[in-house]
Design a protein around this nucleic acid. Structure first.
Lengths: 153, 153
DNA sequence: TGGGAATATATGGGCGTCAATGGGTATATG
DNA sequence: CATATACCCATTGACGCCCATATATTCCCA
């Protein structure tokens, strides 16, 4: 499986370390499973994360913008300066930067939610509420959910 | 990671030295981690910096501008003639030239902002305000920022 | 197929190393 | 000679690496 799926709730220890779920670690390229990137979610009070490969793609995209335009600076600032890299130790744990923990309201436990090509980290209660909310929103438009699930290719 | 990412706020000591963040030092080629270049940002009251290797890329960007336009001369002059090289000592510190410090209003602390292939140095408060402003500008076009982060391939 | 062993995962904690910072002194440069 | 700056050493706190344990999962074999 090369996608981040399922959800897990892990503890944050005294040193601030938390285990990246094993199945998530396996999504990272075998070559580099020691480094991941984290950033604030744009739409929700959660942290998003993924492997560094994804960041390089983003860099390429930004690099294609007009170098002397205001957009270039805006994207570059909002993305590169907001992204943090963190190292995964041999046991599969990493540190969540204080600022990001504050942003997501995470204290003693972190809930991991697979999102396909990336994952989200939530304060457990808020995270569960969010999945309920989003499921409720989808059910209001059953049609679109059914399409999404049955559509081929 | 071979990109300048994340942000850091470091102190400037009595001698005027400031530590280049460790993760930034690691972006510089192993061969030459003792020299960096600095220049005034064209669009903001900040200092931009990068390894000397990046000079070629800057030259290329400027060359891509219309040679006979006013912009060409302006950029060429504004950037090349303003570039200064600085040495990083064994502890990873360097001196910020007085003129550049004045330009950015930097006094006792410098905020480093990763920008991918280069970085910016700001007076901390102004720097943080700048990130807020640029994010606000981008959120006006939510779509584009979201695309930049989530687009595949 | 049941039970026990080997393996993997999540978690805890000790300790050495490195990063950021401060300061003394030699050296260079005008 | 005077000022600036490079090199050396020291301190502190954070982080990475290593080892240990408990629980869960898989595997294997009788």
């Amino acid at each position: 499986m090369d996608l981040f799926v399922s959800k897990y709730i892990n503890k944050i220890d005294k040193k601030g370390r938390v285990s990246l779920p094993s199945s998530f670690r396996n999504v990272l390229p075998k070559a580099n499973r020691t480094e991941i990137i984290l950033y604030k979610s744009i739409k929700t009070p959660s942290i998003e994360g993924c492997g560094v490969g994804r960041l390089k793609e983003i860099a390429k995209r930004i690099n294609n913008l007009d170098f002397f335009s205001e957009d270039y600076d805006d994207f570059s600032t909002s993305i590169f300066s907001e992204i943090v890299t963190t190292n995964v130790d041999k046991e599969g744990r990493f540190l969540i930067p204080e600022e990001l923990k504050l942003y997501a309201g995470i204290k003693t436990e972190a809930a991991f939610f697979g999102q396909g090509h990336f994952f989200q980290m939530w304060e457990p209660k808020q995270g569960l509420k969010n999945t309920e909310d989003s499921r409720r929103r989808l059910l209001k438009e059953k049609k679109s959910l059914r399409m999404m699930l049955t559509q081929q290719k």
